[in-house]
């Protein structure tokens, strides 16, 4: 009985300390030092949130760079992958289908090597990135859909280069490009071109 009472008291004490004070303390510091990041790295346009820089969005329109396949169609409630094993026939069929779709959608040569992240679904279903080479393969299609001439198309290629994130500190992770950021910049580029006309 004495042990039970001690257990209850210690449990209560640690619940308050690690379950209330600790998270509140971290929240306080986080909101003070990194308010934007602590609140989800939201991108605000005209006072409205249009997305989070970290959360990928579904892009399948011909005027945008395409995002990775997602087992949850970029609906974050809840997040997750396909969990298909490599010998699952569904996975093989999906890869064949996605490859065909990517090649025809972007009017590429049928022998083009499609970057594998465009054929396989991500782990979170919310991957905000693709490889820069996947973006470059889409330039012609987007330029055509937006009616860009060849100099404007070059601007688009420059945009991809400027938005490419290299390995962090030149050391960690993989080179990548944030598709939401890229598409926002693309809209802006298009806007500027139209305004200049």
């Amino acid at each position: 009985m004495k042990t039970l009472i001690t257990s209850l008291k210690i449990f209560l004490f640690f619940t308050v300390l690690t379950g209330v004070i600790y998270p509140l303390f971290v929240t306080g510091i986080a909101q003070l030092l990194f308010p934007n990041k602590a609140n989800g790295s939201l991108i605000i346009k005209d006072n409205k949130a249009i997305g989070s820089e970290l959360i990928g969005q579904q892009f399948d329109s011909s005027i945008y760079f395409t995002s990775r396949p997602s087992a949850i169609s970029y609906n974050p409630l809840p997040s997750g992958g396909s969990n298909y094993g490599l010998t699952n026939i569904k996975l093989k069929n999906l890869v064949v289908e996605r490859k065909h779709k990517f090649i025809t959608f972007n009017r590429l040569d049928s022998l083009t090597v499609v970057p594998s992240e465009m054929l396989f679904a991500s782990a979170s279903g919310l991957d905000p990135h693709t490889s820069p080479s996947a973006a470059l393969l889409q330039v012609d299609r987007i330029a055509k859909a937006r009616g860009f001439d060849s100099s404007q198309k070059q601007q688009l290629i420059d945009l991809i280069q400027s938005k490419t994130e290299e390995m962090q500190f030149g050391l960690l992770g993989e080179p990548r490009i944030n598709i939401l950021n890229l598409n926002i910049a693309l809209d802006k580029l298009d806007q500027n071109i139209t305004n200049n006309k």
Partner: peptide
């Protein structure tokens, strides 16, 4: 948090995506 992990008590954020659909972004400590 400095790298971008969230830490807040806000309600889930509903956003209008670039392609015009709705996306609900979860929040929390």
């Amino acid at each position: 948090v400095g790298q971008g992990v969230i830490q807040n008590f806000k309600t889930y954020e509903t956003v209008q995506t670039l392609q015009g659909t709705q996306q609900v972004i979860p929040m929390g400590p």
